[in-house]
Simulated scan of single mutants.
Amino acid sequence: MTTPDAKPTLAVGFGCRQGCEAPVLLQLLEQSLLARRIDLASIAGLASIDGKRHEPGLIELARHLQLPLVFFEAAALQPYEPRLSHRSSLAFARTGCHGVAESAALALAEQLGQAPASLLISRQKHPQATFALAWTGQNP
């Protein structure tokens, strides 16, 4: 349970095509945060689906930002489906999850913040990747 003074926990979720490079992911992240005036330093971690565990771009980005990178199994992301802003049947066919970026962001925010999470930035799409930001605690 969060206290009224608790800092928000911000978690990023990514979905990406195989071979998506770290600079593409970083640009998507920075553009999305800039549009909402959110400081990159306030991000607590990055997340994706376990099928992306060996994606060099995600690994390189986490290293560059010095943030933890957490991967969730599709079954762990499935309960978030009713809270997604967009449900992709293509993503479900490929991953077993209707929305990787949003589900992963929600799952990580709840894991780190130990409280229910909400989407602060819904799915942002790039030709090679998707991004979402979830938070717990007071509105950032």
Rank of each mutant, 00 (worst) to 15 (best):
R53H: 14
H54K: 13
L120K: 11
H126A: 05
E60M: 10
K52T: 03
L67P: 05
L61G: 13
H86Y: 15
L34F: 03
A93H: 06
A41D: 15
A107C: 12
T136V: 11
F72Y: 14
P82R: 09
V100I: 15
A22E: 15
W135L: 15
C97Q: 08
A74L: 10
G57E: 05
C20Q: 03
S85D: 13
R37K: 14
H54T: 12
L90K: 08
A35V: 00
S42G: 05
W135C: 09
L40F: 07
L119V: 03
P82A: 07
R83E: 09
E60H: 13
L133E: 12
G15N: 09
P56T: 06
L46N: 06
H86I: 02
T9H: 14
T95L: 11
L67R: 15
A11V: 01
A11Q: 08
A75Y: 06
R37G: 04
L133T: 07
A6D: 13
R37H: 15
L33R: 11
L33W: 12
A129C: 13
V12H: 09
A91F: 02
Q111L: 10
L46M: 10
G15T: 02
S85Q: 12
V24P: 10
L33I: 04
K52F: 07
Q78V: 14
V70I: 15
R53M: 12
A47M: 05
V100K: 10
L67N: 08
H126L: 02
T130H: 12
P82K: 15
Q124F: 08
T3M: 10
S32Y: 11
G137I: 00
E55L: 04
Q128D: 08
S48R: 09
L25T: 04
A44N: 10
I49N: 06
T136K: 13
P4T: 03
T3D: 15
A104V: 01
A105T: 09
Y80T: 03
L58R: 09
R87E: 00
C20G: 02
A62W: 14
Q66Y: 08
L84T: 00
P8E: 02
H98T: 00
A93P: 01
E55Y: 08
G15K: 13
P82F: 13
S85F: 08
E102T: 01
L25G: 05
H54C: 11
C16D: 03
A115C: 07
Y80W: 15
F131N: 02
Q27W: 06
L46V: 00
D5Y: 11
C97G: 02
Q128Y: 10
T95M: 06
Q78D: 14
A62M: 07
T9P: 03
L133F: 12
A93F: 04
D39Y: 06
S122W: 02
G96N: 09
G15A: 04
T9M: 04
T3F: 15
D50H: 10
G13L: 01
R53G: 12
H98D: 01
G113E: 12
A132V: 00
I59Q: 14
H126V: 01
V70N: 11
A104K: 06
P68Q: 10
E73R: 12
P82M: 02
A6Y: 05
P68A: 14
C16M: 07
L34R: 14
L28K: 03
P68F: 11
V70S: 14
G45I: 00
Q128K: 13
H98V: 02
F72L: 02
E60Y: 13
